[in-house]
Simulated scan of single mutants.
Amino acid sequence: MSEVALGPPRPKRVQGGSATADVVLSAHGGGNAELFPQILALHVPEGAVVADVTYGQGVFWQRVPPGRYRLLASDLATGTDCRALPHADGAIDALVLDPPYMEGLLRPKAGTRGGQGSHAGLRTYYAAGGGGEAPGGGRWHQAVLDLYLDAGREARRVLRDHGILIVKCQDEVSANRQELTHVQIVTGLAELGFYARDLFVLVRPNRPGVARLLRQVHARKNHSYFLVFQKVPSGQPVSRYRTRDLPPRAPGLADGG
Rank of each mutant, 00 (worst) to 15 (best):
D171F: 00
A94V: 12
A219S: 09
F60S: 01
A91W: 04
V158N: 03
Q116Y: 11
D22W: 04
R83V: 10
V144E: 04
G56C: 10
E172P: 01
L246G: 10
D89L: 09
G138H: 08
T243N: 09
V183D: 09
G111S: 03
P11A: 10
T187A: 15
G29Q: 01
G235M: 03
T181H: 14
P205V: 00
D245A: 14
L42E: 03
Y101R: 09
A196F: 11
A254L: 15
R107Y: 10
G90Q: 03
L105M: 15
V23S: 05
S118W: 12
L40E: 01
H162S: 02
L199N: 11
L159P: 08
E46I: 15
V24Q: 06
G114T: 12
V158T: 02
R68G: 08
G131V: 09
P8A: 11
R177H: 14
G56F: 14
A120Q: 08
E3Q: 05
V238E: 08
F194W: 13
D98V: 13
G90A: 13
G115Q: 06
S26H: 10
Y69W: 10
M1Q: 08
R204L: 13
S26F: 04
P9Q: 06
P37L: 09
G31L: 09
R68Y: 12
T112E: 11
G31I: 08
G117M: 12
K12T: 05
Y148W: 09
G90V: 00
P108Q: 00
P233A: 04
S224V: 11
E133C: 15
T243Q: 05
H119L: 13
A175G: 04
R83T: 15
F60Q: 14
L147F: 10
G16I: 06
A88W: 02
E3W: 05
K221Q: 12
E103R: 11
A41G: 13
H182I: 00
V232S: 00
V203W: 02
T112F: 08
P9D: 05
G114A: 13
Q62Y: 08
P248M: 08
G136Q: 03
L199A: 08
V59K: 13
L40D: 05
D98P: 03
Y225K: 08
G30I: 01
V228D: 00
R13A: 07
V232P: 07
F36V: 02
A175D: 07
E133P: 04
W61A: 06
G7N: 10
P45V: 02
E154I: 00
D52L: 11
G129A: 01
L40Y: 01
V53I: 15
A175P: 05
H87V: 03
A219K: 08
L227K: 07
A211T: 08
R212D: 15
G163L: 07
P66R: 13
Y241F: 15
A128F: 02
G137H: 00
L85S: 03
A5L: 14
P237D: 02
G235C: 04
L246C: 06
V14R: 13
E46W: 05
Q230T: 10
A73V: 07
V167S: 07
D75C: 06
V144R: 03
P100Y: 04
V144C: 02
L42Y: 00
I164E: 00
M102G: 14
V96Q: 02
Q236N: 03
E179T: 02
Q216D: 07
F36I: 12
P251C: 03
G16Q: 13
A134V: 02
A127Q: 12
K221R: 15
G104D: 01
L35D: 00
P8T: 03
